[in-house]
Design a protein around this nucleic acid. Structure first.
Lengths: 191, 191
DNA sequence: ATCCCCATGTAATTTGTTACATGATTGA
DNA sequence: TCAATCATGTAACAAATTACATGGGGAT
């Protein structure tokens, strides 16, 4: 699955411009499928080329023109097919966890700061998702409520884990910087 | 941060071959920074070119030769610098959540199956992390214990959320397939 | 027999990110 | 006056995935 497919799916719910879609990616999708203009605009152009969407230009006064895309029957079909076919994956790529894994190579203050920033951004995420939930309302589609609730629950779980276990990294009795230097550098001995 | 940097970091703890590193990526790093041979081998070649690691070939009988890489002082320096410099991010890309968001487009049985597979793979992940924790032991570096515990806690939180909220997607009163077809397809009306 | 483990790599392709390029309007 | 919102795109680049290519040994 790629961003093209996601755009197609969003257009199934109604016409939109690239700019509109970006807002969706920045709000609902941010925590599990973020995308920027650099992916969205080329996707729409390609989908239009393949006849999966159509585009009308809407001149506006006092504002740049909008290109509003609509899904076509074959586009809807393609999306449904793509969705049935996926072999879903849940992928994480976390530089925070990399940093924590290599905590011994970080200056204690830098480590502490990273943990603080992380906690804060998780808190911001929860706040953002809460207000989004409020905005979409209780009558929003089940899928929407499910993914927003998921994001909130997981962000909270992450914050809690950090809260409860952060001290195992920042604790006093840790060795700094050269950890591993004293140990053997020879794999045969390690294994 | 990229896989090159990760390889460098792992080599700080001791010499290893590409094959060895892959095993690390498949065990400890799987839940937050997975990588395959296609990324690892070219990374090592490049690091060797830049003098950040050295390589010795070790002929083995009855087995293919191994290329064992060792970090150099400048490699260690480069890694430390890279680690201080990162502006860490935690990124998720989940096709499961995409599927859940678009649940109305999925046949109920397919949806149910996806949820079941997801729950199962989360359970497997927890099991795997538990046995990894056992293997590395309580005297493993704090960073290792932190990231393994993190993975376990989050996988559990995800499984729990699905357990508790999956029925809002599979519930009986949901409309199927053509959801949104009846609704307007015009953005002006939607907004 | 067949599959998994050992062990290496390359090449093509896909995908996405970042930077560049433009420019008016609105609200603080 | 300054930042943000509206609105579009391209081009260069970075990065990683996938498929391809090889081949013996050991276990079931």
């Amino acid at each position: 699955m790629d961003i093209k497919t996601l755009c197609l799916g969003l257009l199934c719910a109604g016409d939109a411009s690239g700019y509109d879609l970006k807002k969706q990616f920045e709000s609902t999708f941010k925590h599990f499928y973020p995308a920027g203009y650099g992916s969205i605009y080329p996707s729409l152009a390609d989908l239009a080329n393949r006849g999966l969407v159509t585009c009308r230009e809407m001149p506006q006064d006092k504002k740049p023109d909008r290109k509003v895309y609509s899904i076509t029957p074959s586009g809807r079909e393609a999306f449904t097919a793509a969705l049935q076919d996926v072999d879903p994956e849940h992928k994480v790529r976390s530089e925070y966890l990399v940093a924590m894994y290599f905590a011994d190579f970080l200056e204690p203050q830098r480590l502490e700061q990273m943990l603080a920033v992380w906690r804060e951004s998780l808190g911001d995420g929860v706040t953002r998702l809460k207000s989004l939930e409020r905005d979409v309302g209780a009558d929003a589609p089940a899928g929407t409520r499910f993914v927003l609730g998921f994001g909130k629950a997981i962000a909270r779980a992450m914050a809690q884990y950090i809260e409860e276990n952060g001290d195992m990294l920042t604790g006093p009795e840790r060795e700094h910087e050269s950890a591993g230097l004293a140990k053997t550098n020879n794999i045969e001995t390690r294994l």
